[in-house]
Design a protein around this nucleic acid. Structure first.
Lengths: 112, 112
DNA sequence: CCAATATTTTAGTACTTGCTAAACTAATGC
DNA sequence: GCATTAGTTTAGCAAGTACTAAAATATTGG
């Protein structure tokens, strides 16, 4: 069992999670999209993500398909919400800045 | 410069952040509330939090008063939002579960 | 059963972290 | 200036992490 925080602290694991967010992918597929690390490394990261219940696996023949379990992000969201409303005044200011300044930069989701 | 993720991965640092969320506190005050670690350790954690711009300091005589900068949590919130809407179907389900099941357990904020 | 494919596990290494104890740096009150 | 108080910084250590290369474990098609 590994904490959601720990699992997500590593940028590589956040990248992996994004890759399996809306699509099921095999470890090999994931690895193919991050050629800068070995297969083993990806597998290890997946194990950590699994440990935090952030991904689930579906076995199919000689493939294992990974997919995100976004519900597992709930503790993080709750923590954030908790901090958030313990700090309302500052938050207000942030919201206003957000309003004026940088648009949410909603990157269009990649296909395939 | 340290990332918000890195800063918050450590439970102790999350605890410290909560302590200075709505109140300004000196390092000594903070340390007094977590007797299981030394002063030095607290100071180091504060340095990391400062490095992630999660807290700010106000110097006053021989005291340094720390206070959270919740705006610094924005990247985290944005990341979460991004993942969130890349996973709408699953999220829907979560929202419903949340609805039925466990109430948000909004811990009443501690005084002093 | 055998070879091939897909993936995990292990051993090993370099680097980082959280902590303590102790040394150091300020600022204040006398 | 000196002792005191508040805090930071440093050296050192044990434990943990991210990675690679290589060995081990399935699963399938012939």
């Amino acid at each position: 069992m590994v904490s959601v925080w720990t699992a997500l602290e590593a940028p590589r694991r956040r990248a992996i999670l994004r890759l399996v967010l809306d699509v099921e992918r095999s470890a090999g597929d994931i690895r193919a999209r991050m050629p800068e690390v070995t297969f083993g490394a990806v597998s290890q990261h997946l194990a950590v993500l699994r440990g935090a219940r952030l991904v689930q696996v579906r076995k199919d023949g000689r493939h294992r398909y990974y997919r995100a379990r976004p519900e597992a992000l709930a503790p993080l969201a709750r923590w954030l919400a908790g901090v958030w409303d313990g700090a309302l005044p500052e938050l207000q200011a942030l919201a206003e800045a957000e309003e004026r300044g940088q648009r949410r930069s909603r990157t269009p989701r990649r296909r395939r």
